[in-house]
Design a protein around this nucleic acid. Sequence first.
DNA 1: ACTTATCGCACTGCCCCAAT
DNA 2: ATTGGGGCAGTGCGATAAGT
Length: 222
Amino acid sequence: MGGCVTRSEDKIVRVGGDPDPALGIDPPTSVAGQEWREAVPNDRLAHLVKDALRGLSRGLQMRLTEHDVSFGHWTFLRILWEHDGLTQRELSDHAGLMESTTFSALVAMEKLGYVIRRHLPENRKKVHVFLTPEGHALKDTLVPLAEEVNAIAVRGVDPADIAATRRTLVAMVQNLIADEADGLKEQRRMPSTRQVSRIIDRSERRRNGTKAAGAPRVSKAP
DNA sequence: ACTTATCGCACTGCCCCAAT
DNA sequence: ATTGGGGCAGTGCGATAAGT
């Protein structure tokens, strides 16, 4: 999930996503949704799931931003509303994110006053995360927003179709988890962004017949 | 020795905005 | 209207510190 929350007060102008080279057309816009749908009757499920995810994420992000909550924070708030007092490691597992991501999100959330991080006497190594009253109170505000986005997404869809879609998506998730597990057995694993970058860089050099650049990439960060 | 938390860095995806 | 650069949020890896 790579979306980000714009901090500006301006409305988000761009509704569609990046043009998909495989399709040669733009994903849906709020205006041209019907035309888009007719143009891709046999689009691959992966593309449709991606576009659905993008739409759901953006819909929720826009609403969360109005309450000073980022999408990343929403992920952890949801878990903490159900399991307050988890350790950072446990939160990472529940969220399916790396510990460094969890750490930076929790530091930001602590600054915002949504959580506090505490060592407990039993184990001073572990950091437990607790919701503040403000963090608890956000549940009543934010959950209806998520429900609203879900309701908008399935507007006009037959309940039986929604149930079938749910079953299909659950099956897809299970199948893909199994596939990834099989891949691990065969030493196939998800490359890091750095590895991907290195591989592409090598491939580019091979194609251009140039020798190794060796120059370190310059971070765009200040 | 092992586990867990933290930090720095590199990267992607996205958005904004000025220049064309 | 389009394009390219800059900036930001989110993410993951690797290294290191600190606790058990």
